[in-house]
């Protein structure tokens, strides 16, 4: 099963050709990592998948529908790199508002807060929380609707190792329950936590597949070396 199918995607942002004929598939029910250095086009690709990016050419199909179709708005959760929540409201109030937009019951607010381990600081205005906590509030909003596809742009940046590990296990739990996760990162050591990988560089997909397969193909010892082999071989 394929949750996302991208074919020949071309995106120009300002004067840069952000994506050049990108094609890829994201398998359902798994955690797929989108890896690459900053500026490689990860965010642009995620935006195109969520349907908020103006594209020049190519097709993006999400859960069998064209990206950005109205029915997908309650089936896809998206978390941007910078936390997009209301800083003057408490975490709980943010979640309560988004829950009403998604038309989901109020209990989900508690569950989402627990999932990101924020139940304790949920009553303080978000702007008073630390950067990591703010990022988790933003993530909790995306979890509210129990989306079939969760698109996360660098969700673990700035988090301490314990929390990072906890979040990754939360991602795998969600995948085990049937959700598809697409998680971007510029840190290669996160690649090892993914079921499948898409490696990007300069607006192109350099390689895609399961971590073991990429290691076997490149005869590298770790994914960082595998990335180097793939880039230099390309």
């Amino acid at each position: 099963m394929t949750a996302v199918r991208v074919r020949g995607l071309d995106v120009v942002r300002g004067s840069t050709h952000a994506l050049r004929s990108v094609s890829l598939e994201v398998p359902s029910g798994r955690v797929t990592g989108l890896l690459g250095p900053s500026g490689s086009g990860k965010t642009t690709l995620l935006r195109a998948i969520v349907g908020v990016q103006v594209v020049r050419g190519g097709t993006v199909e999400v859960l069998g529908l064209p990206a950005g179709s109205p029915p997908l708005r309650s089936r896809v959760g998206y978390v941007t790199q910078a936390p997009s929540v209301y800083g003057d409201l408490a975490a709980r109030e943010n979640l309560a508002y988004f829950a009403r937009i998604l038309r989901v019951p109020g209990e989900r607010v508690e569950r989402a807060l627990e999932l990101v381990d924020l139940s304790r600081s949920s009553r303080r205005p978000v702007r008073e929380l630390s950067g990591g906590e703010q990022a988790r509030v933003s993530l909790a909003v995306a979890l509210l609707g129990e989306p079939e596809l969760l698109v996360l742009d660098e969700p673990t940046v700035g988090l301490d190792p314990v929390l990072r590990r906890d979040l990754w296990s939360a991602f795998h739990r969600l995948a085990a329950e049937g959700a598809t996760l697409l998680v971007s990162s510029h840190v290669m050591d996160e690649a090892e936590r993914c079921d499948s990988l898409v490696l990007m560089r300069e607006g192109r997909v350099v390689a895609a597949g399961e971590p073991e397969a990429l290691l076997a193909r490149t005869r590298a010892e770790n994914l960082n070396d595998a990335f180097l082999v793939l880039v230099e071989g390309a």
Binding site: V50, G51, V52, P70, R73, S74, V76, Y78, T80, A82, P83, S84, V85, Y86, G87, F98, I101, L102, R103, V141
Partner: peptide, 11 residues
């Protein structure tokens, strides 16, 4: 702050 973009991805 990006909340508008978030709202635009929601129903």
């Amino acid at each position: 702050t990006g909340t508008l973009e978030r709202l635009m991805t929601l129903p």
